[in-house]
Design a protein around this nucleic acid. Structure first.
Length: 215
DNA sequence: TAGGCCATCTGGTCCT
DNA sequence: AGGACCAGATGGCCTA
């Protein structure tokens, strides 16, 4: 898939565009209260009910009960519901955009070539995880050589999963040792020929050199 | 054409 | 009550 840049304007496809007819559930919600349980109410039934054309207390009686008439209430209620839903949709969209922005920022600090295909979301997360793990190991090696100690044995088996913990949720996704299909820094790039990790002039990511050395 | 990825909508749940 | 978060559903786009 040709990744669409995140900043590109997203086409707002409303429910109305996708689904020419209102969802049954929506209709049921608005109709259920205002009309007696009758089989298969149509929007027209609802409209009639709202206009007082349906069975139910006559106008006079309704008015006598005081306050606003019920149909009007239902109308207002459904309007309010729609408005709330719309606001919630906006927030949700916004939230997902923020999430994607964060993901983009993460992509930005991962060592790939600028013209490489964009990492997918899951690839980005897995790659970042293993990248951090690799950098950690690099620091470890550097520390040991600085203090004149023997470098630690860098076997995945000894080190466990990249997060340093048990092979829990993260490990199940990409323990470098066990997950052949995982996005370990090297493996992930073999999986996607378009993507490479290297310390090259084209790659302007912090830690890329150390990372490449480590590899 | 099938499958992968994605954006969006939606209803439910939890929290403030 | 309203917002944040989540997961399921749906449909569009793209590639092998």
């Amino acid at each position: 898939m040709a990744p669409h840049p995140l900043g590109s304007p997203t086409v707002q496809v409303t429910r109305e565009m996708k689904q020419p007819f209102p969802r049954a559930s929506d209709h049921q919600v608005t109709c259920a209260v205002s009309a007696p349980p009758s089989p298969a109410l149509t929007p027209r039934d609802c409209a009639e009910a709202e206009a007082g054309g349906c069975r139910g207390p006559p106008r006079k009686l309704r008015a006598r009960r005081g306050g606003r008439s019920r149909p009007k209430n239902e109308l207002a209620l459904s309007k309010q519901r729609r408005s709330r839903r719309k606001k919630a949709n906006d927030r949700e969209r916004n939230r997902m955009h923020n999430l994607n922005s964060a993901l983009d920022a993460l992509r930005g600090v991962l060592p790939t070539f600028p013209d490489d295909a964009k990492l997918t979301k899951i690839e980005t997360l897995r790659f970042a995880h293993n990248y951090i793990w690799a950098l950690t190991q690099t620091l470890r090696i550097a520390d040991h050589s600085f203090y004149g100690l023997e470098p630690p044995a860098l076997s995945y088996g000894e080190l466990g999963s990249p997060d340093g913990g048990s092979a829990g949720d993260w490990g199940s996704l990409y323990s470098p040792a066990s997950q052949a299909g995982s996005l370990s820094p090297a493996a992930s790039l073999e999986e996607r020929p378009g993507l490479r990790v290297a310390a090259s002039p084209a790659c302007q990511c912090p830690g890329a050199q150390a990372f490449a050395d480590f590899l």
